[in-house]
């Protein structure tokens, strides 16, 4: 378990919106660039990691009750996409310069480290 704020620090990510909700506990993540795959396979209350930045990602995140969205590779959605989130679901959006593989690997290693220190 990790909070969004810890994840933000690990990835040196920039917060695009939803800063007040960074204390949410994250217990899983789903990394993918296919919307249908997110809808079909992602469980509820996960962190979405993606390089897509269109409005569909944001709508998908709402539909699957995602805890937050991380855009990798320094990509950032357009202002109007961020506005949709601010108006509707207020899901935190973060952007990191890490590429997809590095981002997932880093978070995964942090989870493993935390588990070793404090076995479940």
């Amino acid at each position: 378990m990790m909070t969004l704020r810890e994840i933000q620090t690990h990835l040196d990510a920039e917060i695009l919106c939803g800063e007040d909700q960074l204390d949410r506990e994250v217990c899983g993540a789903f990394a993918c660039d296919l919307i249908s795959e997110m809808l079909a396979s992602a469980s509820s209350h996960v962190l979405l990691i993606t390089s897509l930045t269109n409005a569909h990602v944001v709508h998908t995140a709402e539909v699957i009750d995602a805890l937050g969205v991380i855009f990798v590779g320094g990509r950032r959605p357009a202002e109007d996409v961020i506005e949709i989130v601010k108006k509707n679901s207020k899901i935190p959006l973060l952007t990191t310069k890490c590429q997809m593989f590095d981002c997932c690997g880093l978070l995964f290693s942090k989870v493993v480290q935390a588990d070793r220190k404090d076995p479940p």
């Binding site: 660039d33 296919l34 919307i35 249908s36 795959e37 809808l39 079909a40 897509l52 269109n54 569909h56 990602v57």
Partner: peptide, 15 residues
């Protein structure tokens, strides 16, 4: 390119 068209729409709906 938008992340759709994976051929999972109808199977998803059915499921």
């Amino acid at each position: 390119e938008m992340g759709f068209g994976a051929g999972m729409g109808l199977p998803n709906i059915k499921q």
